[in-house]
Design a protein around this nucleic acid. Structure first.
Lengths: 253, 253
DNA sequence: AGAAGGACCAGTGGTCCGTA
DNA sequence: AGAAGGACCAGTGGTCCGTA
């Protein structure tokens, strides 16, 4: 019942985001590929290389060391099932088949908040350091409390999607409807969530940390690295073009 | 020129703190020794044991491994001098001989604040995560900037002394004068700084984190573990005795 | 004995990449 | 191909304990 002015926004959202995805897929091959942050791709590549070297070293060291616990192979019974993958659903829609919907995804964030509050209460009781964010400790607590379907990589992966849901539920709902209609997968929807967030940041002085912290349910989540980088890059672009067109505090051309 | 009502306070402060020190020195030998937190001493002991085991293992593994860089012994030239030890000085007093005064100590905290601000400015410039506290990163930055006399263990060691200086300069000054007069060493003065802080916390609902965060120069420092524990223990003691004497929400005796 | 600080360690934030 | 999450890693907070 709140379906106004959504298509233009989300279409726009998609086209640019797809460009971003393509650039990312293309990788650091050519010379002029776009990067959110200068040098970021190179740094990431270095990190990857390091990790590969590490793994190789570990493998070498493991040769002929101990082959005690080698036969736990086969299909020995009660392996924990993975969660069903998410699909793009519109608000209120229940996912059918072996899928989970986005209302469920956002519900997980609320559950994490509850777990954090419990951890905070225990810490206060004991006079211990009291976390203000969803930390490893909270994820551990959630697991111990039986919420085995909550894990850190998943929650961090979709934080910015939840952020949009918190900060502009209208826009978030519109994006979900549009992406469902077009049959996009979850990855594409997730990518598309960045753009409206950057637009919100633009309207509020680019300070994404302050924006997160000002919202009670969002403040407990770390700002995702990529969202931070996108805001920074876009701010610089915006500043450059505005000073090129109208400004006076730049070198004269 | 601000020397009112200091002696009673600091005397009181000392006597109790010395008891605390003695108990600590006595260790976990007997059964009924006082602990700030139940089980804390046992946990600390366990940690110590673990560390010793670790070191032994490291030593064993190092036997006959590589003796390449073995001969950097002797007295080969420009070794960095340690900082002179602190002595208890009153406000404005310059330490003589190979000693540093407490004004200098507190000055180091202000310097760290300056370094933090620089690190924050760089982070904002680059659109990176911006620290709100004096972190390892800040200590690294300080060292790189030439302030080699600043280091983490030292700064953490005296944080609560600086806290008293920030929160109640009158009381801090009075304590310094009293301890100087009595010829106490730095360690004794440091111990004595806890008590007036706990008293401040008592007046403000025991929330030492909020007290730190409410003060602009103090907010950038982590609350020391021991101060937190003392506040917690004292709060429980106070609550127990007040409910024993006048309360109604406790078991009846 | 008293104190300064190098260096260690357990557990963190962050996310890659082997898995289904 | 698309996605979930175990497990890894660099760098953290915290402070011990060999050193001067």
């Amino acid at each position: 019942d709140t379906t106004n002015a959504l298509d233009a926004l989300s279409q726009e959202g998609l086209s640019q985001e797809q460009v971003l995805q393509e650039k990312e897929a293309a990788g650091s091959g050519g010379g002029g590929t776009w990067e959110a942050v200068p040098g970021a791709a190179a740094a990431a590549e270095k990190k990857k290389q390091r990790r590969k070297v590490q793994r190789k070293l570990v493998d070498v060291n493991n040769i002929d060391d101990e082959n005690e616990d080698d036969d736990n192979g086969g299909s020995g019974g009660t392996e924990r099932q993975r969660e069903h993958p998410f699909i793009v659903t519109e608000p209120g829609e229940v996912a059918r088949g072996k899928k989970n919907g986005l209302d469920y995804l956002f519900h997980l964030y609320e559950q994490c908040r509850d777990f954090l509050i419990q951890v905070q209460n225990i810490a206060k009781e004991r006079g211990e350091k009291c976390p203000t964010k969803v930390t490893n400790q909270v994820f551990r607590y959630a697991k111990k409390a039986g919420a085995s379907y909550i894990n850190k990589p998943k929650m961090r992966h979709y934080v910015h999607c939840y952020a949009l849901h918190c900060l502009d539920e209208e826009a978030s709902n519109a994006l979900r409807k549009a992406f469902k209609e077009r049959g996009e997968n979850v990855g594409a929807w997730r990518q598309a969530c960045y753009k409206p967030l950057v637009a919100i940041a633009a309207r509020q002085g680019w300070d994404i940390d302050t924006i997160f912290n000002a919202h009670p349910r969002l403040a407990i989540w770390y700002v995702p690295t990529k969202l931070r980088q996108l805001c920074h890059a876009e701010r610089n672009t915006a500043a450059a073009s505005s000073s090129a067109s109208g400004g006076g505090d730049q070198l004269p051309f």
